[in-house]
Design a protein around this nucleic acid. Structure first.
Lengths: 261, 261
DNA sequence: CGCTTAATTCCACTCAGTGGAAACGGCGAG
DNA sequence: CTCGCCGTTTCCACTGAGTGGAATTAAGCG
C-alpha cells in the first residue's frame, strides 16, 4: 500500500513538494509579505504544516524571512530561476530580437506569452513609447486568458480537449455574464481560424491583436501586437492584424513551425 | 523518533520539498532542457526519486515536459513568480525609477542586486547605451560574488559571521589563486568602509563601483554603477565612486536606512 | 529485429511527514 | 511592570507517504 499521491492516470507524485510550490504561488504580484497564518488561509493547509514548509523554503533560499513582522517574502532566487527560464527558451531566443526590431519599426507594442494555468504570462512584452528612450521590457506579467487577445489566440492554438477543460474553469470562476463571455471567446477562436488572428480590446483605448504559435514539442505560445491611446476601430484592428500575420509568418519560418493555423 | 530532516539548530524541514527545489535550481542559464538522468547526476539524487519529483513539478506547472527528447524545461510559471517577487520588493519599488533616471542622466549602467547563495543576482540592471533606443533592462542575471564590485559591496554590508561563512565557500570552490583573491576581497571590503564604495573591473574594459544598502528587516542589497569600453583608470573609478555615493545617499534617504556604512 | 541505454514503475520497508494539542513569545492594554 | 491575548512554533505518537533498489518498459540504433 501507500503509493503516495495519485495523479490522473494513477501515477504518483509528491505531496510535500506540491504543497511547497503552492505556497510559493500564494505570493502574487501586489503582496509583498505573507505570514504563516495568511499562507495557511490562502492555501488551505494546516498551520503547522505551513510553518514547516516555509522554513524549508527559507532554507532552500526561495523565501526571505522577515522576523520583525513574522512574515516571509519571495527571495531573489526566484528571479534567477526565472532568468534561467527565459535564457533557455528557444522561442524567445529565436524571435525576441525580431520582436524588438518589429516594435521599433511599426511603433507599437509586441508581446510573447504562454499559459500559466488560467492566466497568460508574458515571456516578453515590449512596450513602445514615442519617447523612444523609455522603451520598456517586462517579463512575467500575467493577464487573464479569457479576456485578452493573447489568451484567446492561445486557446485557438491548443488541443480541443485542453481548450474545453480551460473553458470549464472560466465558467466556474465567474458565474455572472459567462454566457456572453464564452460566446465571445468562441468567436475569437473562429476569427483566428478564419483570419489568422483575433482582435480584442479588453482595456479602454487599447487595440490588441494576437495569433498562436504552435511548435512541435513546445507549449503553445501567443504573439501579440497592440496600440494604446487610440479609439477602437475595426479598420485599425485589421491593419494591426495584417502586420501581425506578416510578422508571425517570419517568426514561424525561423522557428520551423508546421501549421500557420 | 523521526523528526524529519534536521537543520542547523535541530529544527526540522521537509526533505522532498528541498529536493524538488534543488531540481529547479539544476536548470541554470544556458541549459534549455534536462532529462531525468542528467538531473539525477547534477543533484546526486536517485533516479527513481528524480522521476517522481519531476512529475510532480510538471503537475504543479513549474516544468514543461518535452516528450520527444524525454526531457524537461522550466515552465512559464517560474517567471510569473519571479515577476511577483520584483513587484513585491519594496527596495526595487522605491529606487527602481530613480535608477532609471540616474542611468539616463549620468549615461552609465546602474544595477541593484542581492545574494543568491554564492552568486549575486540582479533585481534590475539598467544598461545604458549611447544608441538611446536600445536601453536594456535585465533582471535575474547572476554574477560571481567574489569577483565583482557588487558582490564585494554586499560582503561589506552583511554580518561578520555570514561573511566568514561565504569566504570559506569561495576557498572551497576555487583551490587555485585563492590566497590573492581573498586578499583582494578583503581590500575591497576595507575600501567600502573607508570610501563608501569599492571599485573592481572583473571584465575587460569595464569599470564598476558598488556600495551596500543595509535596511533593517530586509536582506542586504548592493547598488552599482559601471561603464563599458573604457580603459581602466583610478581617476575614472573615483569619479564613478563619487556619483555612486551621491546617488546611494538619496536612495538611503528614501529607504529610511540607518547605516550609510 | 535484437541490442543498448535511459526512463519509469513496482514493491516491501520504514522513517519522514503529519496535524492536533501544548508551549512559546511578542505586544498592547491596564 | 504584569497580565492576557493571539499568532507562531514545537512536540509527539501515529502511520501512510516517500523511498530507492530491482524489475520492467520504452525508445533509439545498428
Amino acid at each position: 500500500m501507500a503509493q503516495a499521491r495519485k495523479y490522473a492516470g494513477g501515477v504518483d507524485g509528491n505531496r510535500s513538494l506540491e504543497r511547497g510550490i503552492e505556497i510559493l504561488r500564494a505570493f502574487r504580484p501586489g503582496v509583498d509579505t505573507l505570514g504563516n497564518g495568511e499562507i495557511a488561509e490562502r492555501t488551505g493547509l494546516p498551520r503547522s504544516t505551513v510553518s514547516r514548509l516555509t522554513r524549508t523554503l527559507v532554507y532552500s533560499g526561495m523565501l526571505d524571512q522577515v522576523r520583525s513582522e513574522r512574515a516571509y517574502r519571495l527571495a531573489a532566487s526566484v528571479i534567477s530561476i526565472g532568468h534561467a527560464m527565459r535564457t533557455g527558451s528557444p522561442v524567445l531566443n529565436a524571435i525576441g530580437p525580431m520582436m524588438r526590431t518589429e516594435s521599433a519599426r511599426r511603433r507599437l507594442n509586441v508581446g510573447l506569452a504562454t499559459a500559466d494555468r488560467i492566466m497568460m504570462v508574458y515571456l516578453e512584452s515590449i512596450r513602445y513609447s514615442p519617447r523612444a528612450a523609455l522603451r520598456n521590457v517586462v517579463a512575467g506579467q500575467q493577464v487573464p486568458m479569457e479576456l485578452t487577445s493573447l489568451g484567446r489566440a492561445y486557446l485557438a492554438g491548443i488541443a480541443e480537449t485542453d481548450r474545453e477543460r480551460l473553458l470549464k474553469q472560466f465558467r466556474r470562476r465567474s458565474a455572472a455574464a459567462t454566457r456572453t463571455l464564452l460566446a465571445e471567446v468562441r468567436r475569437s477562436i473562429s476569427a483566428v481560424e478564419r483570419d489568422g488572428y483575433c482582435a480584442v480590446s479588453w482595456q479602454p483605448a487599447v487595440v490588441a491583436v494576437a495569433t498562436p504559435i504552435v511548435i512541435e514539442g513546445l507549449p503553445v505560445y501567443a504573439l501579440n501586437m497592440s496600440l494604446q491611446n487610440v479609439e477602437r476601430s475595426d479598420a485599425l484592428a485589421s491593419e494591426l492584424g495584417a502586420y501581425l500575420n506578416a510578422f508571425a509568418a517570419k517568426c514561424r519560418e525561423v522557428l520551423g513551425d508546421r501549421e500557420p493555423r
